[in-house]
């Protein structure tokens, strides 16, 4: 009986906090993406033929965790098959956040473009029975900074 109560409580907590956090995070991501629009991050490797620039490696990372409610949804999905939307939004948020952090670092150095952006995803913490606990997303690239 207590088990069910605890389960329901965790579900409710996960749902409530998770939803609130996600909405807030998306709002902040959209705002910051607009602010950083003038600093493009491209995946091209071909550098322009310019001389007075510094090439510096910049990176941004984020470790994000899925909430209890979403984990339960995903478990159900594992049973029936199909898209796990709960995880899709989680990874989308994490990736955009990592790119934003990379851009913020580059902007602080005075860069005006980031070349050869690479993304890496790794699962760093496994919960019980190998379920996805938390995921790290890393974005890195080469920032071009005009020399003073």
């Amino acid at each position: 009986m207590y088990d069910i109560l605890i389960f329901l409580a965790l579900m409710a907590l996960g749902y409530g906090f998770g939803r609130y956090a996600e909405a807030k995070h998306y709002k902040s991501i959209i705002q910051r993406e607009q602010d950083l629009q003038h600093l493009p991050a491209v995946s091209s490797k071909v550098l322009p033929k310019v001389t007075h620039v510094d090439n510096i490696l910049v990176s941004g990372n984020v470790v994000i965790s899925v909430d209890y409610f979403k984990r339960f949804l995903a478990m159900l999905r594992n049973f029936f098959g199909g898209r796990i939307t709960a995880y899709e939004t989680l990874l989308d948020r994490a990736r955009r956040e990592a790119i934003l952090r990379m851009k913020e670092q580059a902007k602080a150095m005075g860069a005006n473009i980031i070349f050869n952006v690479k993304m890496e995803t790794s699962s760093i913490y496994k919960g019980e029975k190998d379920s996805v606990g938390s995921v790290e997303i890393l974005a890195y690239g080469t920032a071009l900074i005009p020399k003073q």
């Binding site: 996960g14 956090a21 984020v62 994000i64 965790s65 909430d67 913490y125 938390s134 790290e136």
Partner: peptide, 20 residues
């Protein structure tokens, strides 16, 4: 902290800094 965050969801700042 991480196991708590596993219930609520969200960023694990401690891990982010550690990995950085």
């Amino acid at each position: 902290m991480a196991s708590l965050k596993n219930i609520f969801g969200g960023e694990l700042k401690g891990y982010t800094e550690l990995l950085q």
